[in-house]
């Protein structure tokens, strides 16, 4: 009987290890075998990128939660210490400019999309797709129009944001976005639309290339928009708003 018991204990140990490793492999979402066994470097790298992007998403959610908690605590603290209304209002305003809180309000939505059916014999197919500089031109024109907050496909633009080209997609705040680009800006709709028309590049996109190249570009005012808060990390320790021109940097 004692021998039998130790038999089962030994089996238990190995089965425990089996279950543990099996579950770990399953949950780690690592393709075991195909991609790695062939030693395919490219697939390995793709896998690493996908794993890291997944991790990044989780961390961004965590950061978002913590930032909201900090804002809540500060609000409570200000109320308890009887700090003036103007102090908290100023804090909120600065936080909005820094992109740390979501912003709601009227504004303008600009959508940009590739022409998916370029004419046969097109000289340069690059002419028929939206590039990083197109997105940048629209964003800069919107800042000039006095936008309080700008989001590109749910990515908030902040002072450290860059809009740049990576392969076949565009990188905004280290998140890949692709056509169609939806650029939403909170601000005075009329001023924003006027700024788009006044900007040379933006006006070309909106009025010329729509016809000549078949790009799908449109700008329309919206009554109520929600631009999410910035989800990434902020490295600068000190930021100051320039009051004459309350624009947190122009992206480009």
């Amino acid at each position: 009987m004692a021998a039998l018991r130790s038999h089962y204990l030994a089996l238990t140990v190995v089965l425990f290890v089996f279950g543990f490793l099996g579950a770990l492999a399953y949950r780690s979402n690592v393709t075991v075998g195909t991609a790695t066994a062939t030693g395919d470097r490219h697939e390995q790298l793709v896998q690493i990128v996908e794993n890291l992007e997944q991790k990044k998403g989780a961390l961004e959610g965590e950061l978002q939660r913590l930032r909201e908690e900090i804002a809540d605590q500060e609000r409570l603290d200000a109320a308890r210490r009887g700090l003036s209304q103007s102090y908290t209002a100023e804090l909120e305003r600065l936080r909005m400019l820094a992109g740390l809180v979501s912003v709601k309000g009227p504004g303008v939505v600009v959508t940009l999309a590739d022409n998916q059916h370029p004419p046969d014999g097109a000289i340069d197919p690059n002419n028929y797709i939206i590039h990083d500089y197109d997105v940048r031109a629209i964003a800069n024109a919107l800042w000039l129009g006095g936008a309080e907050a700008i989001g590109i496909n749910e990515e908030r633009l902040v002072q450290s944001s860059a809009i740049r080209c990576v392969g076949t997609t565009v990188l905004v705040n280290s998140t890949r976005v692709g056509s169609p680009f939806v650029i939403s800006a909170v601000g005075d709709p009329n001023a924003l639309l006027a700024a788009l028309d006044a900007d040379q590049d933006a006006a070309l996109l909106l009025h010329e290339y729509v016809k000549t190249l078949g790009l799908k570009v449109s700008a329309s005012p919206a009554d109520e928009m929600l631009i999410p808060a910035y989800r990434g990390s902020l490295s600068p320790r000190v930021l100051r708003s320039i009051d004459q021109n309350p624009v947190p940097g122009g992206g480009g």
């Binding site: 279950g19 543990f20 399953y26 794993n51």
Partner: peptide
Amino acid sequence: FPLIGLLLGVLGGYLIRYDVPPEYARYL
């Protein structure tokens, strides 16, 4: 006992907050 061991292992492996780096996937 072995079945309980298996169950505990699966539970532990599923709940542990550790991701196996892809380069060690083969060892796993």
